[in-house]
Amino acid sequence: MIDLLALGLLVLTAILLLVFTFLRRKSPASLHVIEAYERLNRSVGLAVENGTRLHISLGRGNLLTARGASALAGLAMLRRLAERTSVSDRPPVATSGDASLAFLSQDTLQSGYRAAGAEEQYRFSTGRLTGLTPFSYAAGTVPTIHDENVSTNIILGDLGPESALLTEASDREDANLIAASDNLSAQAVFYASSQEPLIGEELFAAGAYIGAGAAHEASLNVQDILRWLVILGILLGAIWRIMASLGALI
């Protein structure tokens, strides 16, 4: 029964995604303002103009687990940022705490440069593995923030409380910080340490806000519809339980 429900939800989501992608290609969505992404768009332009670097921290999301989705969201953003900053003197640097993710970040950076017609600018050392445990990852990433003329740090992926070390380093360098995670501990850290925190599923909205395409905008529409379905399901479930309890009393 649960398998059937899950399959039904999956098929419904897939159909909705295809329909909304088709619609969004014809008429782009008007998105409500998320201040962090507004700031990110400004920071990207500034970084290119003043010759500073963007640092994208993709976290430690293993792609063989459900945590990999946040890493994939980070990679979608990295792809777009690589394309937009390909003319910069200082290319963006991506750090990862998972080996597979580090390779995908290299491939994504290269794709971004290729799409912008600047593949010769790509350097393998801009996609880095900095550590394989939470603290070694944080310790390996902090020098990138301190020493490489970074003006904006984008932390987007699966991290834990160790992310506080990264936000602290960013704060010390007076760099912009855009941070989002699928991990609740990291979200609490980002709420306390960033100017405009991104909470919950706002992590997955990154692509739509940096112009990654119609499918990303369509995803937001589908997420909204599914959220209402979940709310309806929870309310109906609660009403059913109350009715059942009342029936048992009577």
């Binding site: 999956l10 989501t13 897939a14 995604l17 459900a66 989705a69 946040s70 994939l72 969201a73 979608a76 699928d182 919950g200 599923e201 992590l203 997955f204 909205a205 499918a215 990303h216 995803s219 589908v222 997420q223 599914l226 959220r227 979940v230």
Partner: peptide, 13 residues
């Protein structure tokens, strides 16, 4: 729940 929905959509993309 929000993260799960985002994960689902990212996977489908």
């Amino acid at each position: 729940i929000g993260i799960a929905l985002g994960t689902l959509l990212t996977g489908l993309r």
